[in-house]
């Protein structure tokens, strides 16, 4: 249930996620080891265009990547196809994006 277009979307989103994941891990380790409090972290992220773009891109890539992966698993496990599969793909993409966007906005909006 993957054509070339979906395959490329999943691979390209993975390529976007690789540096972002590493950056995210590095920042987490830095923040925890440095003993930053939640308030101190928010003070740095709120109003920051950089962190908005960093995690905004991350969320967009995750939504595409995760939805396509879920599509393959559901098709191969339950045999779902056609309109139901399309709804599941777009639905899961939307849910992942909305949940991620909500978190990104909460952390980066001033």
């Amino acid at each position: 249930m993957l054509d070339l277009r979906l395959y490329m979307a999943q691979r390209l989103s993975a390529m976007v996620m690789i540096p972002l994941t590493l950056g995210h891990l590095a920042v987490m380790i830095y923040a925890m080891r440095g003993g930053l409090t939640g308030g101190e972290i928010l003070a740095r992220t709120q109003g920051s265009l950089f962190w908005f773009l960093f995690y905004g891109t991350f969320v967009a890539a995750v939504s595409v990547h995760g939805a396509i992966g879920l599509r393959v698993i559901v098709h191969e496990t339950f045999g779902t196809r056609g309109r139901a599969l399309m709804l599941l793909t777009w639905g899961s993409c939307l849910v992942l994006f909305l949940m991620g966007a909500r978190a990104v906005l909460a952390v980066t909006l001033a």
Binding site: M1, L2, D3, L4, L6, Y7, V72
Partner: peptide, 9 residues
């Protein structure tokens, strides 16, 4: 080989 049943599966 690039359709829904193609090599990318």
């Amino acid at each position: 080989v690039s359709g829904v049943g193609g090599c990318h599966n």
